[in-house]
Amino acid sequence: MTFLFYIFAALTLVGGIGVVVYKNPVSSAFAMILSFLGLAALFIQLDAYLVGILQILVYAGAIMVLFLFIIMLMDVKAEENKTFRGGAILGAILVMGGFAAALVKVLLDSRIGEGKLAPLAESEQSDVHAIGDLLFTQYWFPVQIVGVLLLVATVGVVVLSKKEMK
């Protein structure tokens, strides 16, 4: 199983790097799908089937299709001719390097991984049941707030994208 973990983790990372490195936005979007697929496989390895499937259905499926639609409406050629500036690359490497170093240090120093949590597969309910149950019993209040959030987002989209009359 660890062998599979390394394969999918590598897939996720390669996809992530591809998103940044490719100049063509369409290639970037496809690299992102690759990254999401790797991530979904990692979730499924952890027995979190619902999260894994949602990762594919919602992110790799619906959201990426939306991304591609929008990219197609833009001028792809203009993006391709863009060159990275030296300063920006250096800054990105510094920030990311610092962040990665901090993360590695914290992971080495801390005792994370001496797991206390029971494996998901041993719970009595299927995880779809368990998540649904939690959302609508214990977490009903945040779910209601999310309802208001979606309403606001809908109103906002209508307002901002109304057709302009000439």
Binding site: I145, V148, L149, V152, A153, V155, G156, V159, L160
Partner: peptide, 11 residues
């Protein structure tokens, strides 16, 4: 709650 506020502000 924070996201409700922030998304309204984006608009």
């Amino acid at each position: 709650a924070l996201e409700t506020v922030t998304i309204t502000f984006y608009v």
